[in-house]
Design a protein around this nucleic acid. Structure first.
Lengths: 335, 335
DNA sequence: GAGGTTCGTCGAAGCGCTTCGACGGGTGAA
DNA sequence: TTCACCCGTCGAAGCGCTTCGACGAACCTC
């Protein structure tokens, strides 16, 4: 291991000078700085973790808490994770992965152990048991998702309420009078997952405002679930012509199920999804959708965290406005 | 932060005694040890990273290198990652995520920086540029995947060669005479990804041994690719009745494509997949498959790494024997 | 019961780095 | 020309922990 004293010797200065030359915390002459940098390069010097979490710099590690609960769609979560890692690397940070069970224990461990110097929290619930810990901990954190009481926290998310409304408005504009929301699996709502709940609220609000008949159907993923849900929808909502789906793995199976039941999309039934753009674009029928900007959310979370680390003020809640992209799955209400 | 001196004061001993009581590196009287442990518990003491990577213990962090290249199937990779994290936690380790681009740079950084004290490497290519680094680095590592020259490395993987053979043998036993392998996207082979290449070799070897007509078709994921591949197969291999698919995201689209072209599965065409069990079981038609035991591989990799860290000898290459599970997608050759 | 072992504990040094306080030598002002 | 000041550098202390060497107190053995 090459240490700071090696660099110092090579550059012909003292270790402290090397430290200052590298951190810029005190003025160093150009000449000296150049020599130090050269020595660093030649020796391949890197500051060792054990010391860099000393007093000044942090450990340059972000922790990412991804609960991986049942009912979360893995590819979407992974997109978030990858974008967080990429953004973190761009800021010179590594990413420590915290998964299931670690919700609370893990956060405590990270905080006290100094392993990471900041935290990104995903899959936030409206009343999240982790919040108390986050509020009281000195560890800066950013949530992807907005809990019921976000005071004192920093959160980023798509404005899922507005997203729900946007879907309904799109359908209303096309003349649909009866709409349904096909949601995430029931356990997601039972856990009071923030974004899922907000979407439902937005959907219902907009439907009421436009005086549409509406209903909400949580649903498991999978072909069988899709088939029986489709049948149930037709039975319980005979006038149904517009459906909003907020359940990525269910999209294709549901399309299949509707078509097997003799409904053409969009001639007989309009479908709007809330999901990442690639998912919508590559579905069996390209889906009109409100994009969940997973990559952008991950990146933003990291940016906010880096700003927090540098002591800059950050907004409490950042909600990205939803954007609806029309594709082939929606059309006017059949006559 | 509660430090060792706090514990020492509380327990009425010196810091060094606390250290020894905790590490067991010197005999400590039961009485003293008990007092120390009580103090630790009451104060919630945890040894700080900055120091625990000192000389004795490692940093208790494993790095996981997941390249996330194009053509890798995200859910499968994620399954590996999650199982690695879970297993690592069970051994008291955290997991640092290294993704794209970091192949080499990242490994170097980890090694020199002391951030992690061991490394799990995924998506191994036959001639992997990272291997030199791994061989020369003092950082213990385990590869998930087996390169062309595994000497001096520790590797775990499914025996993909045997898996390819097993699929062919199953089809041969059912009487099929012409078989095709639908593989991963072309770039995966161009990169000389180890498992993909091995599967092809096993497939071809077994087909030759059984005197079956055989062909290999790399294929992109997606509906359009599936459709045109299906058409091309029927055109180029009119006698085709058995297909092995090694491309998770292509499974459902390919089933659809075949059926749209009027082929029933398994009456007209038998399909065998090589993929994780849940993927095979939840496909549109439950697929006869050789299971890729993602979770087990992740767990094994961590076990091996932990043993390496403790200085125990470990086997060089561990290949798990493939197991074929029959489901609804294979049947006797149509007459 | 004197000399030799353990055993259990402590103090101090050291890990690689940052940072505080100090100091020497220019430079500018008077 | 002198004094003040600031710039650039250095030495030393300190971070929280581990570990080496030492030391007193029991405990044996002949």
């Amino acid at each position: 291991m090459v240490k700071i004293t090696d660099v110092a010797r090579r550059a012909g200065v003292s270790p402290s000078t090397v430290s200052y030359a590298l951190s810029g915390k005190r003025p160093i002459s150009d000449e000296t700085r150049r020599r130090v940098q050269a020595a660093v390069r030649e020796l391949g010097y890197r500051t060792h973790v054990r010391t860099r979490s000393g007093d000044g710099a942090g450990s340059r590690v972000l922790a990412l808490a991804v609960p991986m609960r049942s009912g979360v769609h893995v590819p979407v979560v992974t997109q978030f994770a990858v974008s967080v890692v990429t953004a973190a690397r761009a800021h010179g940070h590594d990413v420590l992965l915290l998964t299931r069970g670690e919700g609370e224990e893990g956060i405590g461990r990270i905080a006290e152990t100094g392993l990471a110097d900041a935290l990104v929290v995903m899959d936030v619930q409206l009343q999240d048991p982790r919040l108390a810990l986050l509020r009281s901990s000195p560890l800066p954190s950013v949530l992807i998702g907005v809990p019921a009481e976000p005071d004192g926290l920093t959160c980023v998310d798509l404005d899922f309420g507005a997203a729900g409304e946007l879907c309904v408005e799109h359908l209303a504009r096309l003349g649909h009078r009866t709409v349904a929301l096909v949601g995430s699996p029931p356990e997601v709502y039972v856990r009071r997952t923030a974004f899922a709940r907000r979407l439902v609220r937005g959907f219902t609000t907009a439907a009421d405002r436009h005086r549409l008949a509406s209903a909400v159907y949580p649903c498991e993923a999978g072909r069988d679930a899709a088939r029986s849900l489709a049948e149930r929808l037709l039975r319980e909502q005979p006038a149904l012509t517009g459906v909003v789906v907020h359940n990525e793995p269910l999209l294709d199976p549901l399309i299949d199920a509707f078509e097997e039941l003799g409904l053409r999309i969009p001639e007989d039934l309009s479908l709007t999804a809330v999901c990442p753009a690639p998912v919508a674009a590559s579905a069996r029928v390209p889906l009109t959708s409100v994009t969940v900007p997973a990559a952008e959310l991950g990146t933003r979370a990291v940016h906010l965290l880096v700003r927090k680390l540098s002591g800059a003020p950050v907004p409490g809640v950042t909600l990205l406005p939803p954007r609806l992209t029309e594709r082939a799955s929606t059309g006017p209400r059949p006559v």
